[in-house]
Design a protein around this nucleic acid. Structure first.
Lengths: 202, 202
DNA sequence: CACGAACAGTACGATACCGTCTCGTACCAA
DNA sequence: TTGGTACGAGACGGTATCGTACTGTTCGTG
C-alpha cells in the first residue's frame, strides 16, 4: 500500500484514470443538458464518450452515483463579496453573481431537474440541500450586515428577506420572460432596498 | 354522424366512458404525485385503476398523450379579482390567489416536473405556455391598472414588475423555506408597492 | 330483449436499460 | 523488459416499459 504522491482530487491529475473519468463526465453532462435526466443512461454515455461500460462501472458503482456526481460537478458556487465593500456594493455584487449563475445556460437547464429529482431521489436531495444552504449562508451574511448597519429593517425575518431578494431572479431565470442583465439586477436591488428599509415613521 | 346531445366536456357526463376515463386519470395523478413523471407508466395506471390496458389505449393514443392530459387536468386557474375592488384590494386578492396555488401540495409537486419537461417535451411545453400566458395576462391587467391610477411607476416594464411581484412567491413555493401564509402575502404586497411606486421627487 | 359499444384480462413482440462478466489490449512505472 | 493496472469491446441475463392483438364479458340504450 504505497502512497505515490497522495493524489488529492482525482480530476486534477492527468493520468489515464482522470482522462476517462473526464470523458464520461463530459458525455454525461451533454446528455443531461440535451435530454434531461432520463437521457442520461449508461449506454448513452458509453456510446458518446467512447469509454467502455466496464470502465464506467469501475468508476461509479451504479448509475445513480453517476447522476449524483454529474449534479455535484455542475453545481455553481456563490462566492461571498469582498468584505471591504460597503453594504450597497456588497449587495449589488452578490445579486450580480446570483444573476450570473441563473443566466448560465447549463445551470438554467439543470435547475428544474434538480428541483424535481430532489423530491424522489435521496442523493439528489442531499446535493440540493448542500448547494442551497451554502447560498443561503452567503446571502444571509450580507443581509444581516445590512440589518446591523440600519439599511434593512432589523425586525424582518432573514428567510423572508431572502425570498423577496432572490425570488425575482429565480423567476426571471426559470421563465425567461425577462432578460437577466445588469439593468434587471440593478432594478432588483433598488426594489429590494426600497421595500426592506426600516420605516422612518413609526 | 348523429349528435345526441353534444356531450361538451366528457368528464361531466356519467357514462361508462366517463367513469373509466376518470379512474385512469385519478390513478395517473396519484402516480405522478407519488413518484414523478417516470412513475406515471401505463402498466402502473392499469394496476392501480383496475382499467384494462386496452381501454387505456382506447382513450389515449399514446402514453405521452396521457401525460399531457394529466398536466392539463392539474393546471390551476388564476381568476382575476373582482373589478369593483380598488387597486390595493385587487392586488392583494390576486397575490393571495397566486399564493393559494403555490401553497397547494399537488401543484407544488407538479410544478418542477412541468418546468423540466417543457424543455424536452413539445406537448408539455405547449401546456406550460398556455398556463403561464393566462396568468401573465391576469396579473398584467392588475399591474396596468395600478400604473393608470398612479400607484405604480408608469415607466416600468410590466414583465419586470411581474418578476418582482411573483418571484418571491415562486421562491417560497419551490424551496419551502418560508411558509406561504397571509403574513407572507401581505409582506410581498407591501414590499412590492414600496419598491414599485412612482418617485415623488423627480 | 337484443345488439353494439365499451370493457377486462392477458399474452405477445419489440425495445431500452441496468449491471455483470469475459477476453484481449494498451498504457505506464519500476 | 516486465508486470500490474486500467481500458476497449461486447455478449449476456434480467427487468421494465410501450404498444398491439385477441378473446370473452358487461353495460346501456333503442
Amino acid at each position: 500500500m504505497r502512497r505515490q504522491e497522495s493524489p488529492g482530487t482525482l480530476s486534477e491529475m492527468n493520468t489515464r484514470v482522470a482522462r476517462t473519468h473526464a470523458a464520461v463526465m463530459d458525455a454525461a453532462i451533454e446528455l443531461l443538458l440535451e435530454g434531461g435526466p432520463d437521457a442520461l443512461t449508461v449506454d448513452g454515455v458509453v456510446a458518446r464518450s467512447g469509454v467502455a461500460k466496464s470502465t464506467v462501472y469501475r468508476h461509479w458503482a451504479t448509475r445513480d452515483d453517476l447522476v449524483a456526481d454529474v449534479f455535484e460537478h455542475l453545481a455553481p458556487q456563490l462566492d461571498p463579496p469582498d468584505p471591504s465593500l460597503d453594504f450597497d456594493e456588497s449587495l449589488r455584487t452578490l445579486v450580480q453573481r446570483l444573476a450570473d449563475i441563473l443566466a448560465d445556460d447549463h445551470w438554467r437547464r439543470v435547475l428544474p431537474a434538480l428541483m424535481m429529482l430532489k423530491m424522489h431521489h435521496g442523493d439528489v436531495a442531499q446535493i440540493e440541500e448542500r448547494i442551497s444552504s451554502e447560498q443561503i449562508d452567503v446571502c444571509g451574511d450580507v443581509l444581516r450586515r445590512g440589518m446591523a448597519e440600519g439599511r434593512i429593517a432589523a425586525d424582518a425575518d432573514v428567510q423572508t428577506l431572502l425570498a423577496l431578494l432572490t425570488g425575482p431572479l429565480l423567476m426571471a431565470g426559470l421563465t425567461s420572460v425577462v432578460p437577466i442583465d445588469k439593468v434587471f439586477v440593478d432594478r432588483v436591488v433598488d426594489h429590494f432596498l426600497a421595500g426592506a428599509r426600516p420605516r422612518t415613521t413609526d
